[in-house]
């Protein structure tokens, strides 16, 4: 990286040219060729446009949320009541539902993802690893709304019949497993999210593990370590990247909309029980945006969108930097 550009062919007259007036062609492209200058400027414009889109997103969403921001201020995020009819807009139930469902998803998905990634990189024969990696990545190709459909008609009944009752029997004294068992609620949302973030976390961890130098493994094996002990050395080496992969999964879980909307129950209440219906930031936007009557209602929903945008942008940015710190210099990094 950061190689200097290949030296431009520098005729002797270049020194004379510098003394002459400022040349737009040379300012745009080091070769000073008209075609190069135009070509490079056009491509630069497209790259710049990408940045401008992000800036425009912040400005547009921010300005449309201004009404709500000026009316409620920061307490918006701490308000427990969401009642559009009475003009009460508090985002805490959505923040709670988003955080709990995402953390639940990570708790379920991270161990499995790490297991899959270790198996793919450290254990499986090459041909099998390729096939398995492709199949796991196919999980990421399934659309969110399809996960939601499957969640409503397959996963939710399954959890209601075979998972939640035993859980309640065994751990019902904990506040997390109390209340009526419906199959629709935080737990189902968390499980669906776990399935959805697994391929992303797996793919990034796999890239991270593959980027750990072979010499680390050879050194561990030469010292008499077993395969698993060698893997622990590799995992320790890739730790920052693995942390990045997990945060990347968190960002994905926080912003996931359709599948969660379809199975979480959509009730803006805060309850400790994982069996109870809940609501997430993304879900309330999806459900109520087209029905929002009145400027303040719409503005409050847009402000929720702004919160989601800011959070996922920061989370993804941080994750990306962590992953890059490990995989920098290797090709094909972080496809997720």
């Amino acid at each position: 990286m950061n190689n200097p550009a290949p030296a431009s062919p520098s005729p002797a007259s270049e020194y004379g040219a510098r003394a002459r007036a400022w040349d737009w062609r040379r300012a745009l492209a080091p070769t000073g060729n008209v075609g190069d200058a135009v070509f490079r400027a056009a491509l630069f414009g497209c790259a710049l446009l990408l940045l401008l889109i992000v800036v425009a997103m912040f400005v547009e969403i921010g300005s449309n949320a201004r009404l709500s921001i000026s009316r409620f201020g920061l307490p918006f995020l701490a308000g427990r009541e969401w009642n559009p009819v009475r003009g009460e807009f508090g985002a805490l139930p959505f923040v709670y539902g988003t955080v709990v469902s995402s953390l639940l998803a990570l708790a379920l998905a991270v161990p499995v993802s790490l297991g899959i990634a270790v198996f793919l990189v450290e254990q499986a024969p090459r041909a099998l690893a390729r096939l398995l990696a492709f199949l796991v990545e196919l999980l990421a190709a399934i659309p969110s709304v399809v996960y939601g459909l499957w969640g409503i008609f397959v996963l939710a009944p399954f959890l209601r019949e075979h998972v939640e009752p035993p859980l309640q029997k065994a751990l019902g004294w904990l506040p997390f497993f109390q209340g009526t068992v419906t199959g629709i609620g935080l737990l189902t949302g968390g499980v669906i999210l776990a399935i959805m973030v697994t391929p992303i976390v797996t793919a990034v961890v796999r890239d991270v593990l593959a980027a750990v130098p072979v010499s680390q493994r050879e050194a561990a094996l030469a010292l008499g370590a077993t395969k698993w002990e060698t893997t622990r050395v590799v995992l320790a080496n890739g730790a920052p990247g693995i942390a990045g992969a997990i945060i990347l999964g968190l960002g994905r879980a926080v912003g996931e909309t359709m599948a969660v909307t379809m199975v979480i129950g959509n009730r803006p209440e805060i309850s400790a029980s994982l069996f109870q219906p809940s609501y997430t930031i993304a879900s309330v936007i999806a459900n109520e945006f087209t029905e929002a009557t009145g400027d303040l209602y719409l503005s409050a929903l847009v402000e929720l969108g702004l919160v989601l945008f800011l959070v996922t942008f920061v989370v993804n940015g941080a994750a990306r930097l962590l992953v890059w710190s490990v995989t920098r210099g290797t090709s094909g990094v972080a496809r997720a």
Partner: peptide, 24 residues
Amino acid sequence: VVRFVSETLTGVPSIVTGVFVYTL
């Protein structure tokens, strides 16, 4: 910067893009 913003944009929820296009 472009590379970083582009990668980060990939992770921004699609519903946020929906809100943006709605206002735009």
